[in-house]
Simulated scan of single mutants.
Amino acid sequence: MSETPNKVWSRWGDELRKNRQRAGKTQAELASCVKISRPQLGKLEAGTRTPSLDISGALDDSLATGGVLQHLWGELHAREEIPREWRDFVILERQATEIREYQPLMVPGLLQTEGYARTLLQQGSVDDDDEHVERLVQARMERLGALQRTPLTFVVDQPALERVVGTKDIMRAQLSSILRLSSRRIRVSVVPNHSPQRPLVGGSFRIMALPSGGMVAHCEHLLGQVVVNSPKDVGKMLRYFDHLQSEALSPGASRDLIQRMRGDLG
């Protein structure tokens, strides 16, 4: 019985086949080089077997592709594993060279703990079953790990961190996690309750710098997100972010405030 090709991984298999043929190697020869069976290599090329990152790297080395298969694996893995409603957003996020985010109502998604994220998603996804919610939770948990070197700057309103989501234990763990994550690369600044010059912004937004030198922004609303890529509009959002950041406490003073809020939870 023939196996049905996976639509996502067939593209990777086509790239593998093209590079193998360009290198003048048979399936048997290449399989021997990377220490897998010829039938297994055939399934990889046909898209009926999902490759791993390690095998992608071994094949890149054997075919001298310059990392083409590993790069494509990363792109396709995001499409395969991330829920459809987050795919384009997360793929773009992983390409960003810098991310700035403002959140007035909740802890930014990249900083959320599993318990905090699960509570939010359960409360906000009334039409989704438990399995779908768990997929969303795991996808959210994997996002920060994929941004090992990306500078991240968060500006968060104080009420977003004071509001208890779920239980006090969940919120205490969440605040502790923010304190652990805060570093030179991950900067968290809190806009205190008393900030009379704080600009009035209707909702959360994030701005991502891209490798091309351009920028794209996302504004969140009840049913999803709006993508903003007009230089004029992105520039306006950058100014809003700068003004909010200027009204926020320094990262050090923000840590002190978060520690006090955590202590208030008992």
Rank of each mutant, 00 (worst) to 15 (best):
T97R: 00
S204A: 14
L223P: 00
A160N: 02
S125E: 13
R38F: 01
R185S: 09
W86M: 15
V190C: 12
V107C: 11
D130E: 15
R163G: 05
Q112M: 11
A173Q: 14
R260L: 13
L76A: 13
R79K: 09
P151G: 08
P196T: 13
R11A: 05
G115A: 13
T48H: 00
L147V: 02
N193R: 14
T48W: 01
W86T: 08
G214N: 06
R255D: 11
A117V: 10
G145E: 08
T48G: 01
E85H: 09
L111V: 07
L200R: 14
G266I: 11
G203C: 10
S56I: 03
A46Q: 13
L72Y: 04
N229L: 00
P51L: 08
F241Y: 15
Q259W: 06
V155I: 08
K232W: 06
I178N: 03
L152Y: 03
R206T: 11
S183L: 09
E85K: 06
C219L: 15
L175M: 08
G266L: 13
I55V: 13
W9S: 06
K18M: 08
F205E: 05
F205P: 02
L121G: 04
L238P: 00
V126K: 12
L161E: 05
S125R: 13
L222E: 10
L200D: 13
E220P: 01
L257A: 13
I99M: 10
Q95E: 03
V156M: 11
P83L: 01
T167Y: 05
D127G: 05
L92D: 00
K168W: 09
D61M: 03
V137P: 08
P192M: 12
P231H: 12
I55N: 02
E80F: 07
K25T: 01
A253N: 11
A46P: 07
R94G: 15
T119Q: 15
Q95C: 00
A217D: 06
V137Q: 10
V164T: 15
V34L: 06
G24Q: 10
L110W: 09
V126F: 12
S52H: 01
E131N: 07
S10V: 08
A28G: 01
T153W: 07
L69I: 03
K18S: 09
V156H: 09
V165K: 05
S37A: 13
L69C: 05
F241P: 07
G266H: 13
Q158A: 15
L161R: 03
L63I: 07
E98Q: 15
G124V: 05
R206E: 14
R172V: 02
E98G: 12
D88Y: 00
E29V: 06
F205L: 05
V137D: 09
A58Y: 07
S56G: 08
S204T: 01
N6V: 02
T113P: 09
L63N: 06
G263S: 11
G203F: 04
V227L: 14
V126M: 12
D130V: 10
Q148M: 03
Q21H: 12
Q95Y: 00
L121A: 07
M1G: 12
